[in-house]
Structure formats: C-alpha cells, structure tokens
Nucleic acid binder design. Structure first.
Lengths: 124, 124
DNA sequence: TTTTTAAATGCATCTAAGTCGCATTTAAGA
DNA sequence: TCTTAAATGCGACTTAGATGCATTTAAAAA
C-alpha cells in the first residue's frame, strides 16, 4: 500500500502513528499545523512532532512557519508558493510556478503575505 | 528633530521609550526582533511590544514573522521582499522590486526562504 | 515461533516569545 | 501648577513546540 511504501522506502519503522499522520497529510489539499489535526489523531503531541520532523529529514514532508507562530506541514510534491492572509491566517497554495533566483542562494520557499480574497471582499 | 517629529505627527505621546525604539530602528539596515535589541534598550519588554505594536498601527513600522517564531520589525519605507535563511535564520532585504499580483488579493509582503550565501558557501 | 534490542511512544515537565492585569508614573493640555 | 488619560514596570500567564525518561513495540536474529 502507498503509505506503507513511502515509510519503508525511507528506512523508517512502520508504526501506526506514522501511518495515521501520512494518511491525513496525503489527503489534504493544503498545509496543516498540529492544531488542525490534533483531534483526528490518537498519538501524543510529542510523537506527532518527532515523526513529522523525521518525515521532513527524509524529504517526505515540507514545512514553513506562518503568521501565527505555528509551523505548517504538507507532503513534499511539486514546489509551489503559498499565500498567507495577514488578516485571517488562511493559507492558499499558489500553483502558478514562480521562478525566482538569487545569486549564491538556494530558494526553497516563497511566501506571499497579504489580504486574501475573502477578507478583501469583506473590505477588512 | 526627526524622531520627535515622526512620533508627534502620529499624535503619539513623546516618551523616552518611544524615542529609544525609533532611534534603533531608524539606524538599522535590516529588520530586528525584540531579542536583537533587548540589551540596547532600558524599557520592559511589555513596553517594547506595546509601543512597536502602536507604531505598526500608525504605519511607522512594518513587521512579519520569520522562521524562528519571532516577529521582526523595520521602519516602513519602500516596499521590498526579504530573504530568510532556513539554516541560520538571517534576514536580508532584497532591494530589487518584485512585482507580484494575485487577483482579488492584496500583496503586502514577499518572503523568500532558502539557504543564504554564507551557508551556501559553507555547503550546509 | 520466540527472543532480542534499538527505535518509538506517552507522559510530565520545560522553554521562550509574546500578552495581560494592575498599581504607579508621566506627558502635555488646561 | 494642576489634572488626567495614556504610558510604564512588574509579575503572572499563555501557548507551540522540545526534552528526559520509563515503557512499549517493530522487525531482525536465533
């Protein structure tokens, strides 16, 4: 099965905590923080953080900090930028590829912050 | 004097804490977090946070959260993007203007994250 | 299948940036 | 100089995430 293969291909032990986490992230269309999923998982938060961190080391998951002092995680797929609303903190994936180079730097992430459509239309 | 004028033009009381804060930020070439300046100021951290927050309301200062769960502040001047190193957390101002529009969104900030020149050359 | 053991887990505790309530102090207008 | 709303300092609080340690478990060896 897909999830089990991902874990074992990286030489990680196949535990139920890891399967639970991957299941959720593989089925999500947007980055999620611990708080977003804590009610859907049965493991302790320390276990979540240790595992998601290991997934990141193994390049299964990619993460970034948002506006709300929380770290958001998503399955590492095609690189894309994120839009973060400074008003409601919603995160959108921007699928149009932005090519951006800086000499002697490696660009890993592009975060655009501002006011999202919902808040914009409410004129906040 | 410059600093006093900035404060009074926004109808803020001219206090020594406010002068201290502005003095530091006007002389800095890059965004600073509380931790970066705490040894240079004499006020309590609550006072710092309350004032910087007021400066932000009054559009004297602009801020964003970085990688390290800290909020960075800078004097609001020409809009520019920032490069944040995922390895050493250093922040650079990118002066080349990046024009970026998203329909029905307001873009307020552009953060590029990755590996900075120093870390890149060290091959971290 | 059973044994072995390094890795994973749960629990409790800790850390650190930032916030808040409240008593005291101060800027600035009357 | 007096008055008062706003600003300050202090201590306590909040919250995402990290850590130490005893217990459990996956998976390789016997």
């Amino acid at each position: 099965m897909e999830i089990e293969k991902i874990i074992q291909d990286k030489n990680l032990k196949l535990t139920s905590a890891r399967k639970e986490i991957l299941e959720i992230f593989l089925n999500s269309q947007k980055p999620l923080a611990y708080e977003d999923i804590k009610d859907k998982i049965t493991m302790d938060k320390a276990t979540f953080y240790r595992n998601i961190s290991k997934f990141e080391d193994k390049a299964i998951v990619h993460s970034f900090e948002s506006n709300d002092k929380k770290r958001y995680y998503e399955i590492q797929s095609t690189p894309h930028a994120h839009f973060i609303c400074n008003n409601c903190n919603t995160i959108e994936c921007l699928q149009d590829v932005i090519n951006f180079e800086i000499k002697n730097h490696i660009v890993q992430d592009i975060l655009i912050k501002g006011i999202c459509e919902v808040c914009f239309l409410k004129r906040v």
